[in-house]
């Protein structure tokens, strides 16, 4: 929607050249269109300036790469999503190189990057957070609960830039020394730090869902001779399973939208690879790193807004699903249905 209006094809832009000597011969309206000026701009410019613009176009064309790819409009969907055999590459590839002679805007590396870090984050955060929620809501002594809950929620009080800083300065070197993988900043480190940001989200939603399971369930199980742990694990958790699912989905939404942590700790290399120890570039980090330098309204700017819109859509769906599931669950547990 945002991209359709632009054409990033270089050749298209410079296909036609009018030398400054022809200034007098070209009708004004034609010249105005050729130089891409608005009527108002055109009227304010003197002949000197217009000729200057014309010669600048020739200079720009001279600097244009001698490359068949320059003919392509790289913001078409097939280049945004599919592989292409670019000049200078051995085989068709998914390339994100927006600042390049040929602007290559393939979104796939960024999607993979976002999914990879999110996957690591969830893998790390969800089991921990759910187990903690189960413990706090079912097993912990009420007085301990008063301490544990705010303690874990304190984690959500840590700004993400601080987690990013911690991942970058401390965790990255520590884990590299531990595992010996080649790239210091990678999806794994970023994912772990991201997990720390996701834990409080998953925890509080899961805890909420687990607490809303009626006490009668537990009491019945205990009366039948089960231990507290069995009651929590085999009765309460299954009853609240949709809540746990919702917590995971909402955690996913939080993880995929987080910016600063991945910007600082993921290495930001736009590689297509599923290796978790490769450095990776996410959707959010790409927007944060590149938007500031783009020309307002240019194709790079629009592609980044497209990324934002996609991100919005993904989190929107995740939130919607999460909320719906929780609502249903609560309705059921409270006996409304």
């Amino acid at each position: 929607m945002l991209v359709g209006a632009t054409n990033s094809s270089l050749a298209q832009e410079y296909r036609e050249i009018i030398p400054p000597e022809d200034f007098a011969r070209v009708p004004p309206d034609r010249l105005r269109q050729y130089l891409g000026l608005t009527r108002q701009q055109f009227e304010q410019m003197d002949e000197e300036t217009l000729k200057d613009l014309m010669s600048l176009r020739i200079e720009a064309k001279a600097q244009m790469p001698d490359d068949p790819d320059a003919e392509l409009n790289t913001t078409e969907w097939r280049y945004l999503l599919g592989p292409h055999q670019w000049t200078g590459y051995d085989r068709p590839a998914y390339i994100w190189q927006p600042v390049s002679q040929i602007h290559k805007y393939n979104l796939l590396p960024l999607f993979i990057g976002s999914l990879k870090t999110t996957f690591v984050a969830l893998l790390f955060a969800v089991p921990l957070a759910i187990a903690a929620a189960l413990y706090v809501s079912q097993l912990a002594h009420p007085r301990a609960r008063e301490w544990l809950k705010p303690g874990i929620e304190l984690l959500s009080g840590i700004p993400s830039v601080v987690l990013g800083f911690f991942a970058l300065i401390v965790m990255a070197s520590f884990f590299q020394a531990l595992f010996g993988y080649p790239s210091r900043l990678n999806a794994f480190v970023a994912g772990l730090a991201l997990g720390l940001a996701v834990i409080p989200v998953v925890f509080s939603i899961a805890e909420d869902a687990l607490t809303s399971v009626p006490r009668s369930y537990t009491e019945a199980a205990l009366a039948l001779g089960s231990t507290r742990w069995q009651a929590a694990w085999q009765i309460v958790l299954p009853a609240a399973l949709p809540g746990v699912f919702a917590a995971t989905v909402l955690g996913f939404g939080r993880a995929i939208g987080e910016t600063m942590i991945v910007l600082m700790a993921s290495g930001n290399a736009s590689i297509v690879s599923w290796n978790l120890f490769d450095s990776t570039r996410t959707l959010t980090a790409t927007i944060a790193a590149e938007l500031a330098e783009t020309v307002v309204g240019g194709h790079h700017y629009r592609v980044l807004f497209l990324l934002g819109a996609l991100l919005f859509a993904v989190t929107f769906v995740a939130n919607l699903v999460g909320d719906l599931v929780i609502h249903r669950l609560k309705g059921r547990l409270e006996g409304r249905r």
Binding site: W96, P109, A269
Partner: peptide, 8 residues
């Protein structure tokens, strides 16, 4: 182009 695996 820079190699894709170059970290930025």
């Amino acid at each position: 182009d820079f190699a894709a695996h170059a970290q930025t």
